[in-house]
Design a protein around this nucleic acid. Structure first.
Lengths: 341, 341
DNA sequence: TTGTATGCGTTATCAA
DNA sequence: TTGATAACGCATACAA
């Protein structure tokens, strides 16, 4: 039979409430009883029942729900998700919390799952790994007044907990870099405009051009419907006809397609991706990419949520995570000369 | 305020116990009250509190603990883990269960985590994603008499729930295939002998040789300490000196290293990996690999556990999952002629 | 500083 | 077929 707080109380010859207080480090307690109780705890190998504890303390389960977005294919090939989850896991363990998660087939199942885990009081808070411009999940959680944090910049930045890269600057920086290297006509390939991330990266692109007195040319900006190689190929085919000498993308998968098509057509242009996917190292040429520090994004998201859960006042409400531009062969062409500048 | 069973009882003008019975589909209940209660449930949008329910029903939380093994690097590059988790997630959702997991830094933290989640009654059962020949986790769970299932073949196959590929046959099949193609001298590269998987695959290799009257040569069997490219390179360097014309490995990461070294030395031998890592498609030559159906492994593991949790009698105690040998360029050499046979 | 009593939201037991 | 009421294991307000 499981050993309960009653057994410990009996063993230490105190009341259960005293045991409870010792375990929660209540200040008003004598060293003597503290020792006796701890001794009994050790002797009986007592572990508090998490469920009962949650119930008594008003449904604090110390469980965080992680919502994985529905794009199944992404999860496989995009290192963001797995790294973000590692970051979440790391933080959560430090704080003695737990994670629950589920893969959802589609957006409906996704929100059903959120409704489920929040309604039945399974989780204390929720982490959303992605945000749409018009995010139903956020809307629901806000309405239900349920604690949550999003990775990505939400519409309402003031009343939401969020963690994000500075996607604007990250892309601006990439384009600056290319311009410095001498690239003249830089195409843009994005996907899923609805994501704020897409929006920000496009604006970073525009800004870099503007600051370098290059006219923004809508005809070399392509927006696709999803992040995959096929879409990248199509975009590249189109852009090569427009005589670009470089293509920046908002995701490595798009960039992979771009590289394939470029090789196919025997062209040599600069290509940049986002997320620093491992596969990029194996491409020919190896792909230059922006590392978004997924681990850190996850870690800080979890931290933000837990801090706010435990400390209702004066907590931070967001973090901005640094990005790193990892340069590889796809942006190192010898035929481009600095003297062009 | 949250709506509880009391509110529903009041609304439907019945006792809380009646509401509870309706919700759990108790047979002895009149259609009339059933309707009234269901109506009240809908009207108030009542959702039972999972925590309270767990407590009252003797700590059945409907949460399954998934234990990710400590090799951090693996988790990133080995599609097995993420696919297995998708399988688990899929099954668990169908059965209305939940998952909790944590990444562990090392074996000690791993078992600490298991002790934690089992002791505090957070989970009803545990899924282990990997098994050592002398597995401390299994030992602990068995001793504690806590329900669990392992992916991989445990020592005590009779008293343990387990799901595994037929690793013996999978490797035997690969080697048979190579021999049929005309390869004469096939080297073997494995890692972490302690894993039963390693043991089985090596035996499959031996068996195929034997059945083809090829003498087993220990000098072309290499066992490394971990699954990574560097180890693969070293093994390849060694084996090339032994004049092998093919190398089978127990993991794609090892095979990647083999390919790199082989290209480095400008040799052309056959190479085979395991796990069907996406990156293998991008290698030159693209890597032939054994797909172990990770999704199915995870799915069946979860199914086995839940079935046994709910149905203490006459359940299955293991599943064998099929493998598929995916042939790519690394085993299609034109200079090897069938006539050699 | 410690003990008593009550409640958290269910399910289970026992009567009715 | 239903209703009261006692667990489930712990935390906490209140009393001592």
């Amino acid at each position: 039979m499981k050993v309960t707080i009653k057994d410990v109380a009996k063993e230490a010859k105190v009341a259960t409430s005293t045991v409870s207080r010792v375990l929660s480090n209540s200040p008003r307690i004598s060293q003597d009883t503290k020792d006796r109780v701890n001794e009994a705890v050790r002797k009986l190998n007592y572990k508090p029942n998490a469920i009962a504890r949650s119930l008594a303390s008003k449904s604090r389960t110390r469980i965080i729900g992680v919502v994985l977005p529905e794009e199944a294919s992404d999860i496989l090939s995009n290192p963001f998700f797995i790294n973000a989850m590692k970051g979440i896991s790391e933080c959560v363990q430090r704080k003695n919390y737990y994670i629950t998660y589920a893969f959802s087939e589609n957006k409906e199942k996704e929100i059903e799952h959120i409704k489920d885990i929040t309604n039945i009081n399974l989780v204390d808070g929720v982490i959303l790994l992605r945000v749409d411009t018009n995010d139903k999940n956020i809307e629901y959680l806000k309405n239900a007044n349920f604690p949550f944090v999003v990775i990505g910049r939400p519409k309402d930045t003031k009343n939401t907990l969020w963690v994000d890269n500075d996607n604007f600057s990250a892309m601006e920086n990439v384009v600056f870099n290319l311009i410095e290297k001498g690239y003249k006509r830089i195409g843009f390939v994005g996907a899923i405009k609805e994501l704020n991330m897409s929006f920000d990266r496009l604006n970073g692109y525009k800004s870099a051009l503007e600051k370098n007195n290059i006219k923004y040319d809508e005809s070399i900006v392509v927006n696709k419907n999803s992040f995959n190689e096929e879409e990248g190929k199509e975009a590249c085919k189109y852009l090569l006809e427009k005589n670009v000498d470089a293509i920046v993308t908002t995701d490595d998968l798009l960039a992979f397609g771009v590289i394939d098509e470029m090789n196919n057509k025997n062209k040599e242009i600069a290509v940049v991706g986002f997320n620093n996917n491992k596969i990029g190292e194996y491409k020919t040429p190896s792909l230059s990419s922006v590392d978004i520090n997924s681990f850190e994004l996850g870690y800080k998201a979890a931290k933000l949520l837990v801090d706010n859960l435990e400390n209702t006042e004066n907590c931070k409400t967001n973090y901005i995570i640094n990005t790193n531009f990892i340069e590889r062969d796809s942006t190192k062409h010898k035929n481009i000369k600095k003297t062009y500048l």
